[in-house]
């Protein structure tokens, strides 16, 4: 019947009161912004989607809401790509009616495009680094370069798909075709979405129209971009380099 470690003292003052007395405003989290942590616009507004550690609001963990959410999304994406890769692995040998994977794959071309995507991760990280220095010009430049490298990769993929189609492997030809195009297609769509986000971001930075913390937005999209890159690292090895 005894309760575990019941405190006997009545509630003490919530620590937000002190801050209110100073004229600082708690946001919807009931958290008080840390002094001097105003962002670029000098705002201390609270607010759902853009609230977080990076915004100068203390959260329970001290971490940004957005970043936590992005990492969880990426963790979840692992299971998405895991499923697609497994489907491909299971079906790659079932290629009746088309050339086999090792006959089709153009390793030199794919190696170059993989290298391009890998280097786009470098330019992305340089963009993040520039954004954290509040260097808008370099941020825009590196983001643009990243988008261009990504577009090169997607271009190479479109070329590759066309080649495969001419050599007799369509989406509906056999199990190998369906699973190959689904896996690499999903990846390609992820890259394309990334390119759109990068270009939109460049546009918004140039017009100064980013709600919230600019460096954090760049970092968010950077995380997504790197994730797309690491998925390709896995696909490059498992799909292209290791023949069935």
């Amino acid at each position: 019947m005894a309760d575990i470690a019941a405190p006997t003292t009545p509630a003490s003052e919530p620590d937000t009161t002190a801050a209110v007395a100073l004229g600082v405003e708690p946001d919807i989290h009931g958290m008080v912004p840390t002094p001097g942590a105003h962002d670029d616009h000098g705002l201390v507004h609270g607010g759902g989607d853009h609230a977080g550690g990076e915004h100068g609001h203390a959260t329970s963990t001290g971490l940004s809401n957005n970043k936590l959410a992005m990492w969880m999304f990426l963790g979840s994406e692992c299971l998405l790509f895991g499923g697609l890769i497994s489907t491909y692995m299971l079906y790659r040998g079932r290629h009746e009616g088309s050339p086999s994977p090792s006959q089709l794959y153009n390793i030199p071309l794919t190696s170059v495009s993989s290298f391009v995507l890998l280097m786009s991760s470098l330019t992305m990280v340089l963009a993040v680094s520039a954004a954290q220095r509040h260097d808008d010009r370099n941020t825009s430049t590196w983001l643009t370069v990243t988008a261009l490298l990504g577009a090169t990769f997607v271009g190479a993929q479109v070329f590759e798909f066309t080649e495969f189609y001419h050599e007799g492997l369509g989406f509906t030809t056999n199990l190998f075709g369906s699973s190959f195009f689904t896996l690499t297609g999903f990846h390609g769509v992820h890259v394309t979405v990334g390119i759109i986000m990068l270009m939109a971001l460049v546009g918004m930075i140039n017009r100064g129209k980013i709600p919230g913390n600019k460096a954090e937005v760049v970092e968010m999209i950077g995380l997504y971009w790197h994730f797309v890159d690491i998925v390709w690292i896995v696909i490059f090895t498992l799909v292209y380099l290791i023949p069935s």
């Binding site: 299971l79 079906y91 199990l175 369906s178 689904t182």
Partner: peptide, 28 residues
Amino acid sequence: IPVITVALFLLTFQRDFGAAFFSVDKGA
């Protein structure tokens, strides 16, 4: 959820885009 997402995508591709994922006659 992402696992069922994969499964549902494969199913939609099978039925609406002619993919072969569950065509037993093609060795699925």
